[in-house]
Nucleic acid binder design. Structure first.
Length: 491
RNA sequence: CGGGGCGUAGCGUAGCCCGGUUAUCGCGCCACAUUUGGGAUGUGGAGGUCGCAAGUUCGAAUCUUGCCGCCCCGACCA
Protein backbone atom coordinates (compact mmCIF):
# COMPACT_ATOMS: atom_id res chain seq x y z
CA UNK A 1 0.00 0.00 0.00
CA UNK A 2 1.31 3.42 -0.83
CA UNK A 3 2.47 5.90 1.76
CA UNK A 4 -0.32 8.31 0.89
CA UNK A 5 -3.00 5.78 1.60
CA UNK A 6 -1.39 4.86 4.88
CA UNK A 7 -1.30 8.45 6.02
CA UNK A 8 -4.86 9.05 4.86
CA UNK A 9 -5.89 6.07 6.95
CA UNK A 10 -3.99 7.38 9.94
CA UNK A 11 -5.65 10.78 9.55
CA UNK A 12 -9.05 9.19 9.39
CA UNK A 13 -8.31 7.17 12.51
CA UNK A 14 -7.25 10.28 14.36
CA UNK A 15 -10.40 12.05 13.24
CA UNK A 16 -12.51 9.13 14.37
CA UNK A 17 -10.86 8.85 17.79
CA UNK A 18 -11.01 12.58 18.32
CA UNK A 19 -14.67 12.70 17.49
CA UNK A 20 -15.57 9.96 19.93
CA UNK A 21 -13.61 11.60 22.72
CA UNK A 22 -14.91 15.10 22.02
CA UNK A 23 -18.52 14.03 21.58
CA UNK A 24 -18.32 12.33 24.96
CA UNK A 25 -19.18 8.85 23.77
CA UNK A 26 -16.21 7.10 25.33
CA UNK A 27 -12.77 7.42 26.85
CA UNK A 28 -9.62 5.36 26.71
CA UNK A 29 -9.23 3.28 29.82
CA UNK A 30 -6.14 2.23 31.71
CA UNK A 31 -6.81 -1.39 30.83
CA UNK A 32 -5.18 -2.59 27.66
CA UNK A 33 -7.50 -2.34 24.69
CA UNK A 34 -10.54 -1.56 26.79
CA UNK A 35 -12.58 1.63 26.82
CA UNK A 36 -14.93 3.43 29.12
CA UNK A 37 -18.32 4.03 27.57
CA UNK A 38 -19.45 7.36 28.96
CA UNK A 39 -23.07 8.16 29.85
CA UNK A 40 -23.80 9.77 26.50
CA UNK A 41 -22.40 6.83 24.57
CA UNK A 42 -24.16 4.39 26.81
CA UNK A 43 -27.48 6.18 26.41
CA UNK A 44 -27.06 5.73 22.68
CA UNK A 45 -26.32 2.06 23.16
CA UNK A 46 -29.36 1.69 25.41
CA UNK A 47 -31.58 3.13 22.71
CA UNK A 48 -30.16 0.70 20.18
CA UNK A 49 -30.45 -2.14 22.62
CA UNK A 50 -34.05 -1.37 23.51
CA UNK A 51 -35.14 -1.35 19.91
CA UNK A 52 -33.30 -4.55 19.04
CA UNK A 53 -34.59 -6.26 22.16
CA UNK A 54 -38.13 -5.33 21.22
CA UNK A 55 -37.67 -6.89 17.79
CA UNK A 56 -36.16 -10.05 19.28
CA UNK A 57 -39.18 -10.44 21.52
CA UNK A 58 -41.56 -9.76 18.66
CA UNK A 59 -39.91 -12.60 16.79
CA UNK A 60 -40.46 -14.98 19.67
CA UNK A 61 -37.19 -14.85 21.56
CA UNK A 62 -36.58 -14.69 25.28
CA UNK A 63 -33.65 -13.29 27.19
CA UNK A 64 -31.52 -15.36 29.51
CA UNK A 65 -28.04 -15.16 30.95
CA UNK A 66 -25.19 -17.64 30.90
CA UNK A 67 -21.89 -17.56 32.82
CA UNK A 68 -18.96 -15.36 31.93
CA UNK A 69 -16.50 -18.22 32.48
CA UNK A 70 -16.20 -21.21 30.22
CA UNK A 71 -14.31 -24.31 31.36
CA UNK A 72 -11.42 -24.82 28.99
CA UNK A 73 -12.61 -28.29 28.01
CA UNK A 74 -15.90 -26.91 26.65
CA UNK A 75 -14.17 -24.69 24.17
CA UNK A 76 -12.27 -27.53 22.58
CA UNK A 77 -15.31 -29.67 21.85
CA UNK A 78 -16.02 -28.13 18.47
CA UNK A 79 -12.83 -28.31 16.44
CA UNK A 80 -13.31 -25.37 14.06
CA UNK A 81 -14.64 -23.21 16.87
CA UNK A 82 -11.64 -23.60 19.15
CA UNK A 83 -9.35 -23.16 16.16
CA UNK A 84 -11.00 -19.80 15.47
CA UNK A 85 -10.90 -18.44 18.99
CA UNK A 86 -7.93 -20.08 20.71
CA UNK A 87 -5.53 -17.28 19.84
CA UNK A 88 -7.53 -14.52 21.46
CA UNK A 89 -8.74 -15.87 24.78
CA UNK A 90 -8.23 -14.43 28.25
CA UNK A 91 -7.68 -17.27 30.69
CA UNK A 92 -8.32 -17.42 34.42
CA UNK A 93 -5.74 -19.63 36.09
CA UNK A 94 -5.92 -18.64 39.77
CA UNK A 95 -8.58 -17.59 42.21
CA UNK A 96 -6.71 -15.81 44.99
CA UNK A 97 -4.13 -13.11 45.67
CA UNK A 98 -1.80 -12.70 48.62
CA UNK A 99 0.62 -10.15 50.06
CA UNK A 100 4.02 -10.44 48.45
CA UNK A 101 6.23 -12.08 51.12
CA UNK A 102 9.36 -10.60 49.47
CA UNK A 103 8.24 -7.05 49.10
CA UNK A 104 5.31 -4.74 48.81
CA UNK A 105 2.09 -5.17 46.93
CA UNK A 106 0.22 -8.32 46.12
CA UNK A 107 0.95 -11.36 44.01
CA UNK A 108 -1.03 -14.27 42.68
CA UNK A 109 -1.15 -16.97 45.32
CA UNK A 110 0.62 -19.92 43.71
CA UNK A 111 -1.33 -22.25 45.99
CA UNK A 112 -4.58 -21.07 44.46
CA UNK A 113 -4.24 -22.59 41.02
CA UNK A 114 -7.43 -23.76 39.35
CA UNK A 115 -7.59 -27.43 38.41
CA UNK A 116 -9.20 -26.51 35.12
CA UNK A 117 -8.59 -23.07 33.70
CA UNK A 118 -11.58 -20.91 32.93
CA UNK A 119 -11.84 -18.98 29.69
CA UNK A 120 -13.46 -15.57 29.73
CA UNK A 121 -16.08 -16.08 27.03
CA UNK A 122 -15.12 -14.81 23.58
CA UNK A 123 -18.64 -15.95 22.58
CA UNK A 124 -21.01 -18.30 24.34
CA UNK A 125 -21.84 -21.13 21.94
CA UNK A 126 -20.03 -23.73 23.99
CA UNK A 127 -21.39 -22.97 27.42
CA UNK A 128 -24.86 -22.48 26.02
CA UNK A 129 -24.86 -25.73 24.07
CA UNK A 130 -23.55 -27.54 27.10
CA UNK A 131 -26.66 -26.27 28.88
CA UNK A 132 -29.04 -26.94 25.98
CA UNK A 133 -28.10 -30.61 26.24
CA UNK A 134 -30.04 -30.74 29.47
CA UNK A 135 -32.95 -28.67 28.17
CA UNK A 136 -33.78 -30.57 25.01
CA UNK A 137 -35.13 -34.11 24.81
CA UNK A 138 -38.18 -33.90 22.58
CA UNK A 139 -39.35 -32.00 19.53
CA UNK A 140 -41.77 -30.45 22.01
CA UNK A 141 -38.82 -28.61 23.59
CA UNK A 142 -38.06 -26.98 20.24
CA UNK A 143 -37.54 -24.46 18.95
CA UNK A 144 -35.47 -22.99 21.72
CA UNK A 145 -35.18 -19.26 21.06
CA UNK A 146 -32.83 -17.54 23.48
CA UNK A 147 -30.91 -14.29 23.43
CA UNK A 148 -28.49 -12.87 25.93
CA UNK A 149 -27.13 -9.37 26.41
CA UNK A 150 -23.60 -9.73 27.63
CA UNK A 151 -20.00 -8.70 27.52
CA UNK A 152 -17.36 -10.80 25.84
CA UNK A 153 -13.57 -10.64 25.70
CA UNK A 154 -11.37 -11.18 22.68
CA UNK A 155 -7.70 -10.52 23.18
CA UNK A 156 -7.05 -8.84 19.86
CA UNK A 157 -3.59 -7.66 18.87
CA UNK A 158 -4.84 -4.26 17.94
CA UNK A 159 -7.84 -2.37 19.19
CA UNK A 160 -9.91 0.63 18.10
CA UNK A 161 -12.59 2.49 20.00
CA UNK A 162 -15.95 0.72 19.52
CA UNK A 163 -14.78 -1.15 16.43
CA UNK A 164 -12.55 -3.58 18.19
CA UNK A 165 -12.03 -3.39 21.93
CA UNK A 166 -10.72 -6.17 24.13
CA UNK A 167 -13.98 -6.30 26.01
CA UNK A 168 -17.18 -5.40 24.24
CA UNK A 169 -20.91 -5.42 24.84
CA UNK A 170 -23.20 -7.30 22.53
CA UNK A 171 -26.19 -9.55 22.26
CA UNK A 172 -25.91 -13.12 21.13
CA UNK A 173 -28.91 -15.16 20.09
CA UNK A 174 -28.63 -18.94 20.26
CA UNK A 175 -31.44 -21.03 18.90
CA UNK A 176 -32.12 -24.73 18.49
CA UNK A 177 -34.49 -26.21 15.93
CA UNK A 178 -35.92 -29.53 14.83
CA UNK A 179 -35.12 -29.11 11.15
CA UNK A 180 -32.38 -27.60 9.04
CA UNK A 181 -34.89 -25.52 7.12
CA UNK A 182 -36.33 -24.02 10.27
CA UNK A 183 -32.85 -23.08 11.45
CA UNK A 184 -32.00 -21.53 8.10
CA UNK A 185 -35.25 -19.56 8.17
CA UNK A 186 -34.34 -18.31 11.63
CA UNK A 187 -30.86 -17.31 10.44
CA UNK A 188 -32.33 -15.27 7.59
CA UNK A 189 -35.06 -13.83 9.76
CA UNK A 190 -32.51 -12.43 12.21
CA UNK A 191 -30.37 -11.14 9.40
CA UNK A 192 -33.42 -9.22 8.25
CA UNK A 193 -34.05 -7.91 11.75
CA UNK A 194 -30.51 -6.54 11.77
CA UNK A 195 -30.76 -5.08 8.30
CA UNK A 196 -34.04 -3.34 9.10
CA UNK A 197 -32.61 -1.99 12.32
CA UNK A 198 -29.54 -0.64 10.55
CA UNK A 199 -31.56 1.03 7.81
CA UNK A 200 -34.64 2.23 9.65
CA UNK A 201 -33.09 3.18 12.97
CA UNK A 202 -29.44 3.86 12.30
CA UNK A 203 -30.23 5.35 8.87
CA UNK A 204 -27.35 3.25 7.60
CA UNK A 205 -27.85 1.31 4.37
CA UNK A 206 -26.50 -2.22 4.46
CA UNK A 207 -25.87 -5.01 2.05
CA UNK A 208 -27.17 -8.42 3.01
CA UNK A 209 -25.09 -11.32 1.94
CA UNK A 210 -23.38 -14.54 2.75
CA UNK A 211 -19.73 -14.95 3.66
CA UNK A 212 -17.19 -16.91 1.69
CA UNK A 213 -15.76 -19.98 3.41
CA UNK A 214 -12.67 -18.07 4.50
CA UNK A 215 -14.67 -15.41 6.28
CA UNK A 216 -17.15 -17.79 7.87
CA UNK A 217 -17.65 -17.91 11.63
CA UNK A 218 -15.64 -20.59 13.39
CA UNK A 219 -18.01 -23.53 13.68
CA UNK A 220 -20.72 -22.35 11.29
CA UNK A 221 -22.07 -23.96 8.13
CA UNK A 222 -22.99 -20.58 6.72
CA UNK A 223 -22.44 -17.04 7.91
CA UNK A 224 -24.81 -14.32 6.76
CA UNK A 225 -23.91 -10.72 7.32
CA UNK A 226 -24.84 -7.11 6.84
CA UNK A 227 -22.09 -4.95 5.41
CA UNK A 228 -22.04 -1.18 5.59
CA UNK A 229 -19.82 1.35 3.89
CA UNK A 230 -17.99 3.95 5.95
CA UNK A 231 -17.20 7.46 4.74
CA UNK A 232 -13.53 6.65 4.19
CA UNK A 233 -14.47 3.99 1.67
CA UNK A 234 -13.86 1.01 3.91
CA UNK A 235 -16.47 -1.63 4.61
CA UNK A 236 -17.65 -2.64 8.04
CA UNK A 237 -19.34 -5.85 9.04
CA UNK A 238 -22.21 -4.58 11.13
CA UNK A 239 -23.90 -7.81 12.14
CA UNK A 240 -23.79 -11.53 11.56
CA UNK A 241 -26.23 -14.40 11.65
CA UNK A 242 -24.93 -17.96 11.49
CA UNK A 243 -26.48 -21.22 10.45
CA UNK A 244 -24.55 -23.66 12.62
CA UNK A 245 -25.96 -26.87 11.19
CA UNK A 246 -25.63 -29.71 13.67
CA UNK A 247 -22.04 -28.92 14.55
CA UNK A 248 -22.60 -27.78 18.10
CA UNK A 249 -25.36 -30.30 18.73
CA UNK A 250 -22.93 -33.04 17.78
CA UNK A 251 -20.10 -31.56 19.81
CA UNK A 252 -22.30 -31.28 22.91
CA UNK A 253 -24.52 -34.26 22.20
CA UNK A 254 -27.82 -32.43 21.99
CA UNK A 255 -30.37 -34.88 20.57
CA UNK A 256 -34.13 -34.89 20.47
CA UNK A 257 -36.87 -37.39 19.65
CA UNK A 258 -39.06 -36.35 16.77
CA UNK A 259 -42.77 -37.22 16.31
CA UNK A 260 -41.84 -40.63 14.89
CA UNK A 261 -39.63 -41.22 17.94
CA UNK A 262 -36.50 -41.03 15.82
CA UNK A 263 -33.45 -39.56 17.52
CA UNK A 264 -31.64 -36.71 15.78
CA UNK A 265 -29.28 -33.88 16.56
CA UNK A 266 -30.87 -30.44 16.73
CA UNK A 267 -30.12 -27.66 14.25
CA UNK A 268 -28.66 -24.42 15.49
CA UNK A 269 -28.23 -20.73 14.78
CA UNK A 270 -26.43 -17.91 16.47
CA UNK A 271 -26.51 -14.21 15.68
CA UNK A 272 -25.10 -11.06 17.16
CA UNK A 273 -24.48 -7.37 16.99
CA UNK A 274 -22.25 -5.37 19.26
CA UNK A 275 -21.27 -1.90 20.41
CA UNK A 276 -19.37 -1.85 17.13
CA UNK A 277 -22.64 -0.48 15.76
CA UNK A 278 -21.82 2.77 17.54
CA UNK A 279 -18.58 2.96 15.61
CA UNK A 280 -20.56 2.30 12.45
CA UNK A 281 -22.93 5.11 13.28
CA UNK A 282 -20.06 7.52 13.81
CA UNK A 283 -18.34 6.63 10.57
CA UNK A 284 -21.51 6.51 8.51
CA UNK A 285 -22.85 9.99 9.23
CA UNK A 286 -20.48 12.35 11.01
CA UNK A 287 -18.84 15.45 9.58
CA UNK A 288 -16.01 17.72 10.68
CA UNK A 289 -18.28 19.52 13.14
CA UNK A 290 -19.00 16.33 15.01
CA UNK A 291 -21.45 13.49 15.22
CA UNK A 292 -24.66 13.35 13.28
CA UNK A 293 -27.04 11.02 15.08
CA UNK A 294 -30.19 9.61 13.57
CA UNK A 295 -33.16 11.14 15.40
CA UNK A 296 -34.66 7.73 16.16
CA UNK A 297 -31.65 6.78 18.28
CA UNK A 298 -30.31 10.11 19.54
CA UNK A 299 -30.26 10.26 23.36
CA UNK A 300 -31.21 13.92 23.06
CA UNK A 301 -33.40 14.64 20.04
CA UNK A 302 -33.94 18.32 20.70
CA UNK A 303 -31.88 20.77 22.68
CA UNK A 304 -33.28 24.13 23.66
CA UNK A 305 -30.86 26.99 24.18
CA UNK A 306 -32.14 30.18 25.84
CA UNK A 307 -30.68 33.54 24.93
CA UNK A 308 -31.28 36.30 27.41
CA UNK A 309 -29.99 39.18 29.44
CA UNK A 310 -30.92 39.22 33.08
CA UNK A 311 -33.29 37.26 35.26
CA UNK A 312 -36.48 38.86 33.96
CA UNK A 313 -35.86 37.83 30.39
CA UNK A 314 -34.80 34.40 31.55
CA UNK A 315 -38.04 33.97 33.48
CA UNK A 316 -40.11 34.87 30.44
CA UNK A 317 -38.21 32.35 28.32
CA UNK A 318 -38.47 29.66 31.00
CA UNK A 319 -42.20 30.09 30.93
CA UNK A 320 -42.44 29.51 27.16
CA UNK A 321 -39.96 26.66 27.23
CA UNK A 322 -41.91 24.87 29.93
CA UNK A 323 -44.94 24.58 27.67
CA UNK A 324 -42.84 23.63 24.69
CA UNK A 325 -41.12 20.88 26.61
CA UNK A 326 -44.40 19.48 27.79
CA UNK A 327 -45.67 19.42 24.24
CA UNK A 328 -42.54 17.71 22.97
CA UNK A 329 -42.61 15.13 25.73
CA UNK A 330 -46.25 14.43 24.94
CA UNK A 331 -45.04 13.47 21.45
CA UNK A 332 -42.38 11.21 22.97
CA UNK A 333 -39.56 13.48 21.89
CA UNK A 334 -36.57 13.61 24.20
CA UNK A 335 -35.63 17.17 24.91
CA UNK A 336 -32.99 18.94 26.95
CA UNK A 337 -33.28 22.52 28.10
CA UNK A 338 -29.75 23.76 28.58
CA UNK A 339 -30.09 26.87 30.71
CA UNK A 340 -26.64 26.50 32.25
CA UNK A 341 -25.67 30.10 32.84
CA UNK A 342 -21.95 29.44 32.83
CA UNK A 343 -21.91 28.70 29.08
CA UNK A 344 -22.72 31.15 26.39
CA UNK A 345 -25.08 30.32 23.53
CA UNK A 346 -22.33 30.02 20.92
CA UNK A 347 -20.50 27.53 23.06
CA UNK A 348 -23.63 25.44 23.44
CA UNK A 349 -24.33 25.51 19.71
CA UNK A 350 -20.93 24.05 18.98
CA UNK A 351 -21.16 21.56 21.82
CA UNK A 352 -24.47 20.03 20.74
CA UNK A 353 -23.33 19.91 17.16
CA UNK A 354 -20.35 17.93 18.34
CA UNK A 355 -22.70 15.60 20.16
CA UNK A 356 -24.86 15.17 17.09
CA UNK A 357 -28.15 16.38 18.57
CA UNK A 358 -30.50 16.43 15.54
CA UNK A 359 -32.46 19.59 16.31
CA UNK A 360 -31.54 22.72 18.18
CA UNK A 361 -34.05 25.34 19.22
CA UNK A 362 -32.74 28.78 20.16
CA UNK A 363 -35.17 31.06 21.92
CA UNK A 364 -34.45 34.65 22.91
CA UNK A 365 -36.29 37.73 23.99
CA UNK A 366 -36.43 38.96 20.41
CA UNK A 367 -38.17 35.73 19.46
CA UNK A 368 -40.69 35.93 22.26
CA UNK A 369 -41.83 39.30 20.95
CA UNK A 370 -42.46 37.78 17.53
CA UNK A 371 -43.78 34.45 18.89
CA UNK A 372 -41.11 32.52 16.99
CA UNK A 373 -37.98 30.45 17.62
CA UNK A 374 -34.91 29.61 15.61
CA UNK A 375 -34.76 25.94 14.68
CA UNK A 376 -31.47 24.51 13.42
CA UNK A 377 -31.03 21.03 12.01
CA UNK A 378 -27.77 19.17 12.51
CA UNK A 379 -27.77 17.10 9.35
CA UNK A 380 -27.42 19.98 6.87
CA UNK A 381 -26.78 22.83 9.30
CA UNK A 382 -29.65 24.96 8.02
CA UNK A 383 -31.59 27.26 10.29
CA UNK A 384 -35.07 28.67 10.02
CA UNK A 385 -37.30 30.85 12.11
CA UNK A 386 -40.63 29.26 12.78
CA UNK A 387 -43.75 30.02 14.75
CA UNK A 388 -43.94 28.89 18.31
CA UNK A 389 -47.53 27.79 17.74
CA UNK A 390 -47.59 24.13 16.84
CA UNK A 391 -43.83 23.99 17.27
CA UNK A 392 -43.77 20.52 18.79
CA UNK A 393 -45.54 19.13 15.77
CA UNK A 394 -43.22 20.94 13.36
CA UNK A 395 -40.27 19.46 15.21
CA UNK A 396 -41.74 15.99 15.04
CA UNK A 397 -41.99 16.35 11.27
CA UNK A 398 -38.49 17.76 11.12
CA UNK A 399 -37.02 14.84 13.05
CA UNK A 400 -38.65 12.56 10.57
CA UNK A 401 -37.13 14.50 7.69
CA UNK A 402 -33.68 14.36 9.20
CA UNK A 403 -33.89 10.62 9.72
CA UNK A 404 -34.86 10.21 6.08
CA UNK A 405 -32.32 12.69 4.81
CA UNK A 406 -29.30 11.14 6.46
CA UNK A 407 -30.39 7.71 5.29
CA UNK A 408 -30.74 8.93 1.72
CA UNK A 409 -27.42 10.70 1.87
CA UNK A 410 -25.67 7.60 3.15
CA UNK A 411 -27.46 5.48 0.58
CA UNK A 412 -26.47 7.73 -2.30
CA UNK A 413 -22.88 7.62 -1.15
CA UNK A 414 -22.98 3.86 -0.72
CA UNK A 415 -24.60 3.26 -4.12
CA UNK A 416 -22.10 5.54 -5.84
CA UNK A 417 -19.34 3.48 -4.30
CA UNK A 418 -20.24 0.08 -5.60
CA UNK A 419 -18.29 -0.41 -8.80
CA UNK A 420 -17.53 -3.22 -11.16
CA UNK A 421 -14.02 -4.34 -11.99
CA UNK A 422 -13.26 -6.85 -14.71
CA UNK A 423 -9.47 -6.88 -14.67
CA UNK A 424 -6.87 -6.97 -11.94
CA UNK A 425 -5.51 -3.53 -12.85
CA UNK A 426 -8.95 -2.02 -12.77
CA UNK A 427 -9.57 -3.69 -9.42
CA UNK A 428 -6.40 -2.32 -7.83
CA UNK A 429 -6.92 1.13 -9.29
CA UNK A 430 -10.44 1.34 -7.89
CA UNK A 431 -9.30 0.14 -4.48
CA UNK A 432 -6.49 2.66 -4.25
CA UNK A 433 -8.27 5.63 -5.74
CA UNK A 434 -11.90 5.22 -4.81
CA UNK A 435 -12.31 2.52 -2.18
CA UNK A 436 -15.85 1.30 -1.66
CA UNK A 437 -17.27 -2.02 -2.73
CA UNK A 438 -16.01 -3.65 -5.87
CA UNK A 439 -18.12 -6.20 -7.62
CA UNK A 440 -15.87 -8.67 -9.38
CA UNK A 441 -15.57 -12.24 -10.56
CA UNK A 442 -13.66 -14.74 -8.48
CA UNK A 443 -12.91 -18.36 -9.20
CA UNK A 444 -14.50 -19.55 -5.98
CA UNK A 445 -11.39 -20.99 -4.33
CA UNK A 446 -10.04 -20.14 -0.91
CA UNK A 447 -6.51 -19.96 -2.33
CA UNK A 448 -7.42 -17.23 -4.78
CA UNK A 449 -9.29 -15.35 -2.08
CA UNK A 450 -6.20 -15.49 0.14
CA UNK A 451 -3.99 -14.36 -2.69
CA UNK A 452 -6.23 -11.41 -3.49
CA UNK A 453 -6.22 -10.42 0.15
CA UNK A 454 -2.45 -10.64 0.31
CA UNK A 455 -1.99 -8.54 -2.81
CA UNK A 456 -4.68 -5.94 -2.29
CA UNK A 457 -5.71 -6.00 1.41
CA UNK A 458 -9.24 -6.43 0.14
CA UNK A 459 -11.46 -9.27 1.29
CA UNK A 460 -14.68 -10.72 0.01
CA UNK A 461 -17.24 -8.94 2.12
CA UNK A 462 -20.10 -11.07 0.95
CA UNK A 463 -21.93 -12.74 -1.84
CA UNK A 464 -25.27 -11.01 -2.25
CA UNK A 465 -28.41 -12.86 -1.32
CA UNK A 466 -30.18 -13.57 -4.62
CA UNK A 467 -26.97 -12.78 -6.44
CA UNK A 468 -27.60 -12.69 -10.19
CA UNK A 469 -25.72 -15.35 -12.16
CA UNK A 470 -23.30 -14.01 -14.71
CA UNK A 471 -20.56 -15.77 -16.65
CA UNK A 472 -17.16 -14.20 -16.27
CA UNK A 473 -13.49 -14.70 -15.52
CA UNK A 474 -11.76 -14.39 -12.14
CA UNK A 475 -9.96 -11.06 -11.87
CA UNK A 476 -6.84 -12.74 -10.55
CA UNK A 477 -6.61 -16.18 -12.13
CA UNK A 478 -8.84 -15.73 -15.19
CA UNK A 479 -10.58 -18.98 -14.36
CA UNK A 480 -14.30 -19.17 -15.10
CA UNK A 481 -16.75 -17.73 -12.59
CA UNK A 482 -20.53 -17.87 -12.47
CA UNK A 483 -21.22 -14.81 -10.36
CA UNK A 484 -19.73 -11.59 -9.05
CA UNK A 485 -18.89 -11.12 -5.38
CA UNK A 486 -18.34 -7.95 -3.37
CA UNK A 487 -14.82 -7.05 -2.39
CA UNK A 488 -13.64 -4.19 -0.16
CA UNK A 489 -10.98 -3.15 2.22
CA UNK A 490 -12.61 -3.48 5.59
CA UNK A 491 -12.36 -2.74 9.28
C1' C B 1 4.80 -9.46 17.74
C1' G B 2 7.48 -6.18 13.62
C1' G B 3 7.86 -0.76 11.77
C1' G B 4 6.96 4.50 12.98
C1' G B 5 5.66 8.35 16.48
C1' C B 6 4.96 9.98 21.38
C1' G B 7 5.06 10.46 27.04
C1' U B 8 6.20 17.85 30.44
C1' A B 9 -0.49 20.77 35.20
C1' G B 10 -7.27 18.18 33.88
C1' C B 11 -6.38 18.63 28.15
C1' G B 12 -3.16 20.25 24.14
C1' U B 13 1.89 21.83 23.90
C1' A B 14 7.26 24.74 23.80
C1' G B 15 11.93 23.66 25.64
C1' C B 16 15.62 18.38 24.41
C1' C B 17 19.71 18.32 18.98
C1' C B 18 23.89 22.04 21.78
C1' G B 19 22.88 20.15 30.20
C1' G B 20 22.99 25.92 33.77
C1' U B 21 18.15 31.24 37.30
C1' U B 22 11.82 30.42 39.55
C1' A B 23 10.04 24.81 33.15
C1' U B 24 6.90 27.93 28.01
C1' C B 25 2.36 29.00 25.90
C1' G B 26 -2.92 28.08 24.90
C1' C B 27 -7.47 25.85 26.66
C1' G B 28 -9.79 24.44 31.04
C1' C B 29 -10.34 25.43 36.60
C1' C B 30 -11.27 29.25 41.02
C1' A B 31 -12.73 34.65 42.39
C1' C B 32 -14.72 39.33 40.87
C1' A B 33 -16.62 42.54 37.15
C1' U B 34 -18.52 43.47 32.43
C1' U B 35 -21.05 40.19 29.03
C1' U B 36 -24.80 36.53 26.48
C1' G B 37 -28.41 35.77 18.62
C1' G B 38 -22.07 31.05 16.68
C1' G B 39 -16.99 28.21 21.13
C1' A B 40 -16.87 36.21 25.35
C1' U B 41 -13.41 39.96 27.69
C1' G B 42 -10.55 42.05 31.57
C1' U B 43 -8.04 41.67 36.29
C1' G B 44 -6.29 38.51 39.99
C1' G B 45 -5.31 33.36 41.48
C1' A B 46 -4.58 27.93 42.11
C1' G B 47 -2.49 23.82 39.81
C1' G B 48 4.03 20.23 38.01
C1' U B 49 7.06 13.03 41.13
C1' C B 50 9.02 16.84 33.25
C1' G B 51 6.21 8.27 32.33
C1' C B 52 9.44 5.00 35.91
C1' A B 53 14.37 3.44 37.48
C1' A B 54 19.48 3.53 37.39
C1' G B 55 23.85 5.96 35.48
C1' U B 56 27.15 10.23 33.75
C1' U B 57 27.85 15.29 35.87
C1' C B 58 29.32 20.50 40.39
C1' G B 59 24.41 20.56 38.01
C1' A B 60 19.63 16.45 34.06
C1' A B 61 13.02 17.78 31.29
C1' U B 62 17.63 17.93 28.21
C1' C B 63 22.97 13.02 27.64
C1' U B 64 23.34 7.18 28.38
C1' U B 65 21.07 2.42 29.58
C1' G B 66 16.96 -0.42 31.00
C1' C B 67 11.83 -0.71 31.86
C1' C B 68 6.57 0.84 31.50
C1' G B 69 2.55 2.97 28.87
C1' C B 70 -0.15 5.15 24.75
C1' C B 71 -1.26 6.30 19.50
C1' C B 72 -0.63 5.16 14.20
C1' C B 73 0.72 1.41 10.27
C1' G B 74 1.21 -4.03 9.50
C1' A B 75 -0.01 -9.24 10.89
C1' C B 76 -4.86 -11.01 13.64
C1' C B 77 -10.13 -9.98 14.13
C1' A B 78 -16.69 -8.35 15.04
Amino acid sequence: MSKEITSREADYSQWYNDLILKAGLADYSDVRGCMVIKPYGFALWENMRDQLDKRFKETGHQNAYFPLFIPKSFLSKEAAHVEGFAKECAVVTHYRLMNDPNGKGIIVDPEAKLEEELIVRPTSETIIWNTYKTWVQSYRDLPLLINQWANVVRWEMRTRLFLRTTEFLWQEGHTAHATAQEAIDETIQMLNVYAEFAEEWMAMPVIKGIKSINERFAGAEDTYCIEALMQDGKALQAGTSHFLGQNFAKAFDVKFSDKENKLDYVWATSWGVSTRLIGALVMAHSDDDGLILPPKLAPIQVVIVPIYKGADQKAAIDEKVKTLMENLKALNISVKYDDDDSRRPGWKFAEYEMKGVPVRVAIGTRDLENNVVEVARRDNKTKETISIDGLATSIQVLLHDIQENIYNRAKTYRDENIRKADTWDEFMKLLDEKGGFISAHWDGTAETEDKIKELSKATIRCILLDNPKEEGACILTGKPSSERVLFARAY
